[in-house]
Design a protein around this nucleic acid. Structure first.
Lengths: 383, 383
DNA sequence: AAACAATACTTTATCGCTAACGTAGTTTGC
DNA sequence: GCAAACTACGTTAGCGATAAAGTATTGTTT
């Protein structure tokens, strides 16, 4: 059987509370007995029962994360970075996946809340804000991740997707493309905003969107290659097909490029592609993919730090942390652009490492969050 | 404030236990009051406090998973499949990452155990069994995942890595390669066994391993592209470099191929590559990568089902579930081999979907686990 | 009709821990 | 030198649920 506070107390001839206080370093204890207690705890390899602690104190030191798809590299990377922050602060992570299904999501949220998480992070797949009610009236603070609800006063950590759309489309325009299509994502804030950015970039230069060049993502479930593949085939059926495509994300772009290749087109000569997310593998693809980098790792870190802010300081004004997207140009949009090797000297340019060392180029829209976040980001394990 | 059993009991003028029993469907209650209670619960949107339940009952319905790296597609896919099974059975998942650091791993294991998980799944990065002690003497059942300890009598779910090594190397031999190198993984069971398979395949045909052709993975932390890149450069410095390389995993292979390409070699004409893991992106790489498929999704499902067996039926003889690896041939080892498109007809061949529908080709080494697992695998959400 | 049993609840005792006071003994202030 | 303040520890009451045992009430058996 596991050791309990009670055992140690009996062992040492003190009260249970003395042991409990010593454990938590509550001031109300003499250094001498504290050491005595800690010594005995170490000997017995004591570990507090965190369930009991959670129940008694009302704080579990657990964060809940609900994502639509764990396998998607964006969420995997996000979760990893988040988990890193949490670990350093001795927080745990309960992970749930909604599989892009709004109903599953609601059920998962309820379960995670019932487990008493201190904060809930959620990349929601609710297309209507309606479906999201019920989270708000809980007392558990929550943070929206990646996907925002414009009319909900809630904390958010994510990318400026409108700018992402602008950036991607702007790049294609700048490099001389004339007929630019967009394969859009699901009807959630990232998809909507990226599409808005796409329209805006074209409008800015007085370009019209050729009929049928904005393809709505047919099904929400498959935000992946298959959707991109189908959409691209649809585009290729047109009389004059596009000479460039901005894809909702890198997975979509992979599928789209595949379709283009199968149709005998040469990338980027005949047609250019830009994705979004700058997934780890995008540079190793058949044609290395130009993409919008979302600083995914940073997003995870910010989310973690914000989560801890919310827990420590109780209810406060919602904070919106919105990272600036960055364009990464590779071969899929500019011939010969991919000179990234894996040699030592180039390692530092790898965007996936950058966030670990701080990234001076980054711009952040914020309320007050950023100061706090960056102040904290030096934390290392406190032991 | 959240609704509690007590509130409902007062509300209905019955005792707290009546409500508790009605909730759990314990037989000791009349159908009439049961309905009355359930109705009221629904009205009040009651959700049991799972912390309290866990503390009182000793069962939390949570499974703990400790992996070395969340971002690695293998573990992401594994976690996703696992989570699917757990969700359908109303189990939760606590996720921890060891970052390939044995000390962090130990700490994470202790924390997860302190949170009272019902089962612990762990892909350990302990190179010495020693570091793994302390998990066993806990009463929490645990399952080793992917990485086995040969001398530990414990349940295991993973791949037959020896066969994986045989298969990969055998393929290279069969396709006429003469100087086959191996870039090995960390000194854990998969790395060791795959290397054993490599040696055995060569020995079987009376081939010697040219000096310096078996490269030990320099650092455990970077099981990724960088390690593969470095190792490959090392191989290329030899007077007569290899004409084929079996790489520990797909990430390693990506790095290795990159190095080969930079050195001006043509794949597969000058040099062939085979990876392991058959990661989702391997087919989209610059040169589509031949790989050993590990049925990762199936592994996750088996692990989930085994976990539930262990919880339901208490202590029992350890079960070893070992899936048969399968070779997937693509362009990196055989010219023109990759004809996989994304068209409808070919979808069914995608190994990433296969496990969802059952895979008759699969062979499983087992004690009794498989029967139970497949019997259960029809489960759907029970509500 | 006495004895037994089944049904449907209720009571009591934890689970392992913490929050919030309570209380001796010691120190401090003036 | 006596009260206020402080120090270090102890007591009491839960947190929200479950397990196990207890008690009316009704039905069954012989």
């Amino acid at each position: 059987m596991a050791v309990r506070l009670k055992d140690i107390a009996r062992d040492l001839g003190v009260s249970l509370m003395t042991v409990s206080k010593a454990l938590r370093g509550a001031g109300d204890i003499s250094e001498k007995t504290r050491q005595r207690v800690l010594k005995r705890m170490a000997e017995l390899n004591y570990r507090p029962n965190l369930l009991a602690r959670g129940l008694a104190s009302g704080r579990t030191s657990i964060v809940g994360l609900v994502v639509p798809d764990l396998l998607h590299p964006f969420f995997a990377e996000f979760a990893k970075a988040l988990n890193g922050v949490l670990r350093r602060h001795h927080y745990g992570l309960i992970l749930a996946s909604s599989e892009e299904d709004p109903e599953i999501e609601q059920e998962e949220i309820r379960t995670v809340l019932a487990r008493g998480v201190d904060v809930l992070l959620i990349a929601s797949c609710q297309t209507a804000l309606r479906g999201f009610y019920g989270v708000e009236d809980q007392r558990t603070p929550f943070i929206l991740v990646d996907r925002n609800f414009p009319h909900l006063r809630a904390s958010f950590v994510g990318t400026d997707d409108y700018r992402a759309g602008l950036l991607a489309t702007g790049h294609l325009l700048t490099t001389g493309r004339r007929r630019i299509a967009h394969i859009a994502g699901p009807e959630l804030s990232p998809g909507i905003d990226r599409a808005r950015g796409y329209r805006a970039a074209l409008a800015e230069r007085r370009r019209e969107i050729p009929r049928g060049f904005l393809i709505a993502n047919p099904r929400v479930e498959e935000a992946g290659e298959t959707a991109g593949y189908r959409a691209m085939r649809q585009l290729l059926r047109r009389k004059t097909p596009p000479d460039a495509v901005f894809c909702y994300n890198d997975l979509t772009a992979i599928g789209a490029m595949q379709a283009a290749i199968e149709a005998g087109l040469t990338i980027p000569r005949d047609i250019a592609f830009v994705g979004c997310g700058n997934v780890r593998y995008s540079r190793y693809l058949r044609i290395p993919l130009s993409s919008i980098d979302q600083s995914t790792g940073q997003l995870g870190e910010h989310a973690g730090l914000l989560a801890m802010d919310l827990m420590r300081e109780g209810p406060q004004a919602p904070q919106q942390i919105c990272l600036e997207p960055r364009l990464v140009v590779r071969e899929s949009s500019v011939p010969g652009a991919s000179d990234e090797g894996l040699g030592q000297a180039r390692q530092n340019r790898d965007p996936h490492k950058k966030y670990a060392k701080g990234n001076p180029e980054m711009t952040v829209r914020q309320d007050r969050a950023q100061h706090r976040a960056s102040r904290d980001s030096q934390y290392t394990r406190s032991e």
